[in-house]
């Protein structure tokens, strides 16, 4: 099936099998390796990308569903060399350790910020329920998200 999709602002016409998962198309066809396969069951959030601004688990999402939609991966978060405020906050707050969850955390936080002008800690925790990190203990991630929200407002 041919799909037309915009990935990180760039249009693509892609020929994908109906059973192709968005995660594999992003990683293998478009060489966007930022989204990771981990739990493969929509629990951990390592494969999170935004489709029309909404967070989805790319590991359990058919690529054909991206037809006519725009996809944002972590590679599309910065504008050129200028990091997104969330990325900057993650760097400065020490919210990154092994980095395997980082893309998912950033994109989930971005989706959250698009809905909350002034998010509370509870808002952040609510959104991050489905994003696992085994390294940081979460504290610096939550702090980074709140700091980025602060910078923006």
């Amino acid at each position: 099936m041919t799909i037309h999709t915009v990935v990180n602002g760039r249009p693509h016409d892609l020929d994908v099998a109906p059973h192709a998962l968005l995660l594999d198309v992003l990683r293998d066809t478009l060489d966007l390796k930022g989204a990771k396969r981990s739990c493969d069951t929509q629990v951990c959030g390592a494969c999170t990308v935004l489709v029309d601004g909404l967070a989805v688990s790319a590991c359990t999402y058919l690529a054909v569903e991206a037809d006519g939609r725009s996809v944002l991966t972590v590679e599309g978060l910065a504008e050129g060399e200028s990091l997104h405020p969330l990325q900057r906050a993650f760097v400065e707050a020490g919210a990154v350790q092994c980095g395997f969850c980082t893309a998912g955390m950033l994109l989930t936080a971005k989706a959250m910020l698009s809905e909350h002008d002034r998010p509370t800690r509870a808002d952040v925790l609510h959104y991050l329920r489905g994003s696992l990190c085994r390294c940081t203990g979460y504290r610096k991630i939550v702090d980074a998200v709140l700091a980025a929200a602060e910078t923006r407002s």
Partner: peptide, 9 residues
């Protein structure tokens, strides 16, 4: 329900 990604889809 579940988490935000599951709810979106």
């Amino acid at each position: 329900v579940a988490n935000v990604r599951v709810r979106n889809v």
